[in-house]
Amino acid sequence: MANHNAHSGHGGHEGGHGSMKSYVIGFVLSIVLTIIPLVAVMNDMFSKQVTTVLILVMAILQFAVQLLFFMHIRDEKKPRFNLIALIFGLVIMLTIVAGSIWIMTYNAVAT
């Protein structure tokens, strides 16, 4: 992120980052990735487990789309501190969520 704006005086048309094309592709993909889980859930197309996996995968793909097409994570110069920090952050975040679920399974209260 830190770098992609630095030399953008050249205009946004030279492919790669920040072009209209990439924003449009990203937007279309994000719409599609929202519609798929919506349709799957509203029409009860699959079993509960399959649907859960499907919509979580769609959400993760959507995240990747935002990251690649809107936030331009690919354009970072080395050393890629932004990417490293993000990965570390995601690992810790997943630990918090998965760890809590795992530990609290044994400590659930009566609902």
């Binding site: 918090i96 760890g99 609290m104 209260v109 609902t111």
Partner: peptide
């Protein structure tokens, strides 16, 4: 109300 004090202990130690 369905609250779970154990969750606090889990979170605060994280």
């Amino acid at each position: 109300g369905g609250g779970n004090p154990m969750m606090y202990i889990n979170l605060i130690w994280m």
